[in-house]
């Protein structure tokens, strides 16, 4: 009997190894691609160089923060998507479900609207993170303390809708065509032109949030059997709910605040990975984090390679490739979720 067990463990290790290797490859690709056309070997040399050559400035100050953010944000979206789907036991859940993405976007847009974002790098992401916190606080007030996953979804939808409406209002009242263009471009999501200041600001929240969510594996496993059975298995549902809200708010809020709304990664990645981990939520969490990082890093490479005169926005690209993947998944899985 134990032979079985060891076999699954081994294949899980193999999966994690493959995903880690792919993440590394995607990260190196991200460092290697850009208008400067630096060869991968030269890029690695420039990465480690201490001399302030143009190549070193480009690789260390422009491409490295971009690749690191791709890694962090992709992982946060993949992880939180998997956690949300596990928590509400609904394969259509996405990380922004509790209203965090929409309110982070609103906070960021407000800083653009008032022309504050051009003053310092940190103002826009800070506005985004503030927006996320306020949005989620409102969501929790609406949902109440003892809420089930369903009321959480409904309150999240209410907050998302409100934040979306206020974002549209900001666009509607934008003082001039340039600020509306800036808002629209920001909303489409991008990792271009991000600096280490973005990382110092967002990474602590993203990492802390992810750490919190990663502790929920076992609770999410038992939630496969519903909230009642999970509770009788010793799971404290209130603490799980609080942890998932705080974890997702910190990591997805900070991710959205820095990169704008990047859809579909958190929705699609858990689906792609789930069959490889025997559909177990606990194993899906770390695997989905790596999967999200891979998808986002490669997407960010693709937007730089696809030449349409101007760089494609990352959020547009992930939606463009995410939708067909999602449709294919729905068709393939239709029998499972009837």
């Amino acid at each position: 009997m134990n032979v079985h067990t060891h076999k699954t463990t081994l294949s899980y290790r193999a999966l994690m190894l493959v995903l880690t290797a792919l993440t590394l490859i995607a990260f190196i690709c991200s460092l290697s691609v850009g208008p400067a056309g630096i060869k991968t070997v030269d890029m690695l040399y420039a990465l480690l160089s201490v001399e302030p050559s143009t190549a070193a400035v480009i690789v260390q100050e422009i491409r490295l923060p971009r690749a690191l953010l791709g890694l962090l944000i992709g992982a946060a979206l993949g992880l939180c998507g998997a956690a949300m789907q596990g928590y509400v036991r609904n394969p259509l859940a996405e990380p922004g479900l509790i209203g965090v993405s929409a309110s982070a976007a609103l906070g960021a847009v407000i800083t653009i609207y008032f022309g504050l974002s051009a003053m310092y790098v940190w103002i826009l992401p800070f506005g985004g993170m503030l927006g996320a916190s306020i949005g989620v606080a409102v969501m929790m007030a609406i949902a109440g303390r003892e809420s089930s996953a369903l009321t959480l979804i409904l309150a999240g939808v209410a907050v998302s809708t409100m934040a979306g409406a206020l974002t549209s209002l900001a666009l509607n009242l934008a003082p001039n065509p340039f600020s509306s263009l800036e808002i629209v471009f920001w909303l489409l999501g991008s990792l271009a032109n991000r600096s280490f200041e973005h990382i110092w600001l967002a990474a602590p929240f993203i990492l802390a949030g992810m750490a919190l969510v990663l502790t929920l594996g076992r609770a999410l496993d038992s939630l496969s059997l519903g909230e009642d059975t999970a509770a009788t298995l010793g799971i404290d549902l209130r603490s799980v709910r609080l942890k998932i809200i705080l974890g997702v708010t910190a990591s997805v809020g900070a991710a959205t605040a820095v990169a704008g709304a990047i859809g579909f990664v958190g929705l699609v990645v858990p689906h792609l990975i789930r069959p490889f981990v025997g559909h177990r939520p606990s194993r899906l969490l770390p695997a989905s984090a790596l999967g999200g990082a891979i998808l986002l890093l490669f997407s960010d490479v693709a937007v730089r390679l696809i030449s349409l005169g101007v760089e494609l926005k990352l959020g547009v690209f992930t939606a463009l490739i995410g939708t067909p993947i999602f449709l294919w998944l729905i068709l393939r899985m239709r029998h499972q979720y009837v």
């Binding site: 059997l225 519903g226 059975t229």
Partner: peptide, 14 residues
Amino acid sequence: VAYLEQNSRSYWPL
């Protein structure tokens, strides 16, 4: 104390 729910089911194909 173990509890077996009525019509207990798994939401994921574990």
